[in-house]
Amino acid sequence: MHFQSAMSPHTRSAAHTGTLMKNVLYALVPGVLISTELFGWGVLINLAIACVTAIVAEAVVMKLRRRPVAPALLDYSALVTACLLALSLPPIAPWWIPVIGVLSAILVAKHLYGGLGHNPFNPAMVGYVVLLISFPRELSQWPAPGDMLTHTLSVTETVRFLFTGILPETVRLDGITMATALDYTKTQLRLGDDLATLASHDSYGWLGARGWEWVSLGYLLGGLWLLYKRVISWHIPVAFLGSLLLVASLFALIDSTYFSPPLFHLASGGVILAAFFIATDPVTASTSPVGRLIYAAGIGVLVYVIRAWGGYPDGIAFAVLIMNLAAPTIDHFYQPRTFGH
């Protein structure tokens, strides 16, 4: 009787990268739902366009690279990239915005570096930065939260607007868009206003940017679920949010008329999404626990620096990419102590 031979271990857990990625997608659901409720159907349409583009791009590239296509699609990594990018984009951006963004992410940031596991930079953030630099106008047109609108676009109206740029006759573009709180704050502070007068502006909500605070809560919920499922470890979200909170508190204490309160920073822009879903991308983050703390704390500080003194209202993509760059060095210096050493 002949038996199969193999190297130990002869047993494996059921864990699979595809399952992890699927869990990340599930965890996005609360945030997506709240987003859609607040910002309209554009959120879902953006997601759909991005996902289709990602699947097609991934399949074509794998085919071109003469690698098996099915496993690459079944690891769901391309879909995670597409969703994270789509959720960072304004929901009323024209259709080619997510397409270009996803193509940059999948083709350039991911596959040109060798595909899954080999990319030094977060693909979604590369896609976002490409768009931000190339199409600043499209990227800054954020819709006003739904509770402020007199007319909310229906599905067909949204589709028509995204694909043709034509709005219903009764609706004007500046009727459905509004500066985000971060954008407004930056502009007004430059003009010499102080925070106390700004806080009464429409773009401010009860905690952070109007509407964004609810979206952030949705992502927080999903993020906590990921922690519970042990898809991510606590190090990155805690260090990211902790350092941002710390730096923001420090400057708010120094001058509360110029520097926004720390909780406003947490509840505005993409901080929560980034802390639990983007910065936690294991491929581009530091790999040791201590390294992850340093890496994420660096992102927190950089986000604050860009928001407070940089040229963009929000700085998550740049902060993440800069720390991606630093990750290998951090890993080099923070190798954990081996048993018996």
């Binding site: 864990a15 990268t17 992890l20 496993p71 690891d75 990594s77 595909g115 899954l116 596991g117 080999h118 470890s233 294991p282 491929v283 983050a285 790999t287 040791s288 626990p289 190798q335 954990p336 102590r337 081996t338 048993f339 018996g340």
Partner: peptide
């Protein structure tokens, strides 16, 4: 499939390796 450096291995390594 490719390693995504998720660190699951590091978390279980009794020799505290990476």
């Amino acid at each position: 499939i490719p390693c995504i450096r998720c660190g699951a291995c590091e978390a279980v390594c009794p020799a505290q390796l990476q």
